[in-house]
Amino acid sequence: MIKLVLSDMDNTLVPFGARHASPRTMEAIHAVLDAGVRFGPDTGRDYVELMRFFRMDEECFMTGIFSNGKRVRADGDYVQTTLIDHDVLVRLDEVLRPEPGMFLVCYPAETNLFNPAYGVGVSSAELAVFEARTSFVGGTVDEVPDIDFVAATIACPGGPERMERCRAIVAEAVPEVRIVSPIPEWFDVLPAGTSKAAGLEVLLDALGVGLDEVAVFGDAENDLEIMRKVPHSVAVANATPEVSRAARHHVGASADEGVADALFEIARAARAGEMPAFLAD
C-alpha cells in the first residue's frame, strides 16, 4: 500500500513556467489526502513559493521535503531545517562575479510573499529574466545580506558549456557545496550531505512510513538520488533521459497532468486497499 506520495514541483507536478498548480491537480491532491494517503512536494522550492503554487492551500504541503532537503515537514511540524553558511554564500558570490551572466540568488529563512529572494550583484533587468522563467519574486542587492538563508540558486545563462564551467568553478572554490540543475541554465546550491534523499530518511522516520510505502515523482537531476532510493520511483514523460532510465515507473508529461492522473489512481487504489495499477508491474 502507498501511504505517502512525494512529487517534485517544476516540470513534474506543475508545467515549467506555470505559477500555480492546475485546478485538476489540486483536486487530485485532495483526493489522495481524503483517501488517507499523505501528499507533499519534494522540491527545491520553499514555504512562500509553495503557498503561491498551491493557491494558499497549505493542506497540500503539510508534509514534504522543501529546499532540496534543507527543510523537512511532517504533518505540519518542521522536523529538520538546515541553513546555508553566510561565508559559503559570500564565496559563491565572489567566484561568480567574474563570469559573464552568472549570479547568485539567496532565499531568506524568514520571508514573505512579497520578497522571497535576493539577486546578488545583478541588475534588475538580468534578475527579471530568471524571475519570469522560474516564477519567483526578487530584489537586487550589492552583496549577500547578513541574515539566515535556507536556500540559494545560481543563474547560468549560455548553454551546456557555461553550465559545465559553473560546476567546475564552484567545485574548486567552494567544495562545501554541490550544485544540481533542476532546469537548464539554473542550479540549486546544496550544502554537503543535503539532498532530497537525505531529507526522505528524516521524513520517513518522523512519519513511521517505510520506503516501500512511498511513491516519488520527478523529472530532473535534483530528483535522481531520491528516485534511486525508493522502489516506487516515477518519471514524467518530459523527464531527462537520465531520470527516465533511473525511474521504475512512468506517467504522462507534466503539461498533460500526468501526475494528477496518477494521484487519482493512487486515491482509488487506497480506498480499494490495493496497489495503484501503474505501480503494479
Rank of each mutant, 00 (worst) to 15 (best):
K3S: 09
L4I: 02
M9F: 14
P15Y: 14
R19F: 13
S22H: 06
M26C: 02
V32Y: 04
V37C: 01
G40I: 03
R45T: 05
Y47Q: 12
F53M: 12
F54N: 05
M56A: 06
C60E: 00
M62P: 04
T63I: 00
S67M: 12
A74T: 08
A74N: 05
G76E: 01
G76K: 03
V79G: 15
L83P: 01
H86N: 11
V90F: 07
L92V: 11
E94W: 10
E94H: 10
V95D: 13
E99F: 12
P100C: 15
P100S: 13
M102S: 12
C106T: 14
E110N: 11
T111L: 02
L113R: 04
Y118K: 03
G119F: 02
V120Y: 01
G121V: 07
G121Q: 14
S124F: 07
L127M: 14
V129I: 11
E143F: 10
E143R: 12
I147M: 07
A151Q: 04
T153K: 07
I154R: 08
C156W: 09
G158K: 05
C166T: 14
A171D: 12
V174C: 08
P175S: 11
V177P: 07
R178M: 13
I179T: 06
S181G: 10
W186L: 11
D188L: 04
A192Q: 15
G199H: 08
L200R: 02
V202E: 13
D205P: 09
L207E: 03
G210T: 15
G210D: 14
L211R: 14
E213T: 11
V214W: 01
V216G: 06
F217C: 04
V234Q: 03
V234R: 01
A235G: 12
V236P: 10
A239G: 00
P241I: 07
R248D: 11
V251E: 05
A253T: 03
A255Q: 10
E257H: 02
E257W: 01
E257S: 02
A260R: 04
L263H: 00
F264V: 04
E265V: 03
I266N: 02
P276L: 04
A280Q: 10
